[in-house]
């Protein structure tokens, strides 16, 4: 099959995407597919028209690739593509939209307040910060609404740290959220098709709990897969994760990140196109389920293709 692997682009996660893409290309070639790599740019539509791939493997991360933009174009060009569709991508990319969708579906997610820059610049939202801080408590987490990896995510230990954290988060997006910090175990549930793969737990090696960068560095965070969970815990975690997957309208695959606190699991966010590098969590989870990287890629590809009519 002729497969175009979409990777790179101008997103801040270009580096990770190039690594994901390269690994996917390798796997596709080994599977015997005709593979063309496309570093997405202004010539994307022209290239896709010229290449006429039978399917596009979207290995893009971040704004522009994971937010529904590329998917919209692929739909327009009538090229089947891997991973969630446009609507799910839009919802997953925007943490605020995702949290609203989950709340509406009755799924647990930490309390939050979201603000646009306009709210602070023109509506005097700063006046409300005190109330908000009181409701969420410290430490609280400040995040750009749209953004991947740990970029722009900061802990604020007290009120004095909030403005700086907001300025940082607004560097990545015009909308940010302030979220209640939930103490607990960090879990990631990868979903393939409609099935949950074994749960991965991220365990900070030492004292790096408030350092999000640590999570992306080998050696500073240990990953356990499958995570050690009691039957009851496991059931609750998977149920919530699959609930989020469905509530956000995901298909193909996605990764749901949760915190398992004293009150059970709470969903932090969903990644429409989780990393596929050799240190990424989805491939680890697949492997724990006995699925090699090739078979994972093959399965993702199958899920992208229209079901043949009988």
């Amino acid at each position: 099959m002729r497969v175009a692997v979409l990777k790179g682009g101008r997103s801040l996660e270009r580096g990770v995407s190039l690594r994901s893409g390269a690994r996917v290309e390798d796997a596709l070639e080994r599977l015997g597919h005709e593979t063309v790599a496309v570093d997405t740019g202004p010539d994307l539509v022209a290239r896709l028209r010229e290449l006429r791939p039978e399917v596009a493997f979207v290995a893009l991360h971040g704004v522009g690739g994971e937010d529904g933009t590329a998917q919209e174009l692929l739909e327009l060009l009538d090229i089947p593509f891997t991973g969630p569709g446009v609507a799910a991508c839009v919802r997953c990319m925007d943490k605020v939209l995702a949290k609203h969708a989950m709340r509406e579906a009755g799924l647990p997610t930490p309390d939050w307040f979201a603000f646009s820059q306009t709210a602070f610049r023109e509506l005097g939202a700063a006046e409300a910060l005190g109330d908000l801080e009181q409701r969420l408590g410290f430490p609280l987490v400040v995040k750009p609404s749209r953004g991947g990896s740990s970029l722009g995510v900061k802990f604020a230990a007290d009120a004095r740290e909030v403005p700086g954290a907001l300025v940082a988060a607004f560097s990545y997006d015009d909308k940010v959220l302030l979220e209640r910090h939930v103490e607990g175990r960090e879990l990631a549930v990868s979903v393939l098709g409609d099935e949950a793969l074994p749960v991965v737990e991220a365990i900070p090696v030492q004292g790096d709990r408030y350092d999000f960068e640590a999570r992306y560095e080998i050696g500073r965070t240990r990953f356990a897969c499958p995570a050690e969970l009691g039957d009851e815990e496991h059931r609750a975690v998977v149920e919530v994760a699959l609930g989020a997957y469905r509530a956000l309208g995901c298909s193909g695959f996605a990764r749901i990140d949760l915190i398992l606190g004293a009150d059970g699991p709470q969903v932090l966010e969903a990644n429409a196109i989780p990393g596929l590098t050799d240190t990424s969590l989805l491939p680890q989870a697949a492997e724990a389920a006995g699925l090699s990287f090739e078979r994972l890629v093959e399965r993702i590809l199958e899920l992208a293709l229209p079901v043949p009519s009988p």
């Binding site: 101008r10 997103s11 801040l12 996660e13 270009r14 580096g15 990770v16 190039l18 990896s149 740990s150 970029l151 960068e213 992306y216 560095e217």
Partner: peptide, 10 residues
């Protein structure tokens, strides 16, 4: 490696 290094990629 760091997130910043990835930023430099663009």
């Amino acid at each position: 490696s760091s997130a910043m290094r990835d930023l430099m990629a663009i």
